[in-house]
């Protein structure tokens, strides 16, 4: 027995070898190194090559936290999370419940609602960009080209809105909200399929007898929804909300999809653009500013961690398992 177990030990590690090597290089070392770089003041790849040395300290964190661009990114990310997660969850819940209570063409509907998931978020982001786009439209000259949404607005007698990329003389703060709105619509659209899938799965797992019992008691649909469906589905809802927040904090490619690499309308600067936390990290990397990128990554991790913990705590109180 002992003999075989030692033999197995050796074998087991062999099976794990590729995993451990790769994880060591690309996961474990990065964790250590990221912490290290974040603590080396002003760490910079180019400077490193030149042979400069760096002092230990929290300067990177301080720099990042006080840098207006980062604050803007953090604000954008938080805003996106806080707005998109509740909207998409609620909408997904409604759709899932509706899907669950129909019979005819249900499978087809399910497939339709899953479609946004199997898309390239950059590519479809470009479609949204096209739909919301407007070119021209400054105070002096009329828009040359407008997207379908602005055309619809115009058809109803409204003024085209500079959702994505209009050329505008001077900065108009209201455009920021228009930009944000497009982003929110796209993120919600993109987030729906997963949430519907999970919630529908949850709904199908709910014992049908609860609904039969409610029916016999003459419970109204509204009340059934709030008093039975939502509580019984609360574990699934919690899961969807938590993953929604995590995903929200990592939002990046949807912004790229709509606004392109500079993460915002072409003429805007860091104070007004739509950049997110992850976008900031990549930007810092491209600038060879690894110290700040590391610090930002750690801050992101800390935020995700804290938010997840809060979510878990709240759901522990509210969720009925």
């Amino acid at each position: 027995m002992a003999k075989t177990s030692t033999k197995n030990q050796w074998k087991a590690w062999l099976y794990l070898l590729p995993t451990l090597v790769l994880l060591g290089v690309f996961t474990v070392w990065p964790i250590i190194n990221t912490v290290r770089m974040s603590l080396l003041e002003g760490y910079n790849g180019l400077a490193m090559i030149r042979g400069e040395t760096f002092e230990f300290g929290f300067a990177n964190f301080v720099d990042v936290a006080t840098y207006a661009g980062f604050i803007n990114c953090l604000g954008n990310t938080l805003l996106l999370c806080v707005i998109t997660v509740p909207i998409s969850t609620m909408l997904a819940l409604l759709i899932a419940v509706a899907l669950n209570s129909i019979k005819f063409i249900r499978k087809g509907m399910q497939t339709i609602f899953f479609l946004p998931y199997v898309t390239n978020s950059i590519a479809i982001g470009m479609v949204f960009m096209a739909m919301f786009s407007m070119v021209g439209g400054s105070a002096t000259n009329a828009p040359d080209s407008v997207g379908i949404i602005n055309n619809i607005i115009k058809a109803f007698g409204g003024k085209p809105i500079n959702w994505v990329n209009g050329k505008i003389s001077g900065y108009d703060p209201s455009e920021r909200w228009a930009n944000m709105a497009v982003l929110i619509i796209y993120i919600v659209w993109n987030a729906l399929p997963f949430k519907i899938l999970v919630l529908l799965g949850g709904l199908q797992g709910v014992n049908k007898q609860y609904y039969d019992a409610a029916k016999i008691d003459g419970t109204s649909r509204f009340r059934t929804f709030w008093r039975i469906t939502v509580p019984l589905l609360s574990p699934m809802i919690a899961y969807v909300v938590i993953t929604g927040f995590i995903g929200g904090f990592k939002e990046y490619s949807s912004v790229v999809g709509i606004f392109g690499n500079n993460m915002g309308p072409a003429h805007t600067n860091f104070r007004t653009n739509m950049n997110t936390m992850v976008g900031y990290i990549y930007d810092s990397l491209k600038d060879n500013n690894q110290g700040q990128a590391s610090a930002a990554a750690l801050i992101l991790f800390a935020i995700i961690f804290v938010v997840t913990m809060i979510n878990l705590y709240v759901s522990k109180k509210k969720v009925h398992y």
Binding site: T27, W29, P30, I31, M37, G45, Y282, Q290, S294
Partner: peptide, 18 residues
């Protein structure tokens, strides 16, 4: 490690592959 956002690895991995 699943809890850690991938961007945290990206920073160092970028250095490593360089």
């Amino acid at each position: 490690t699943m809890m850690i956002p991938g961007e945290l690895f990206t920073v160092t991995n970028y250095v490593t592959i360089s």
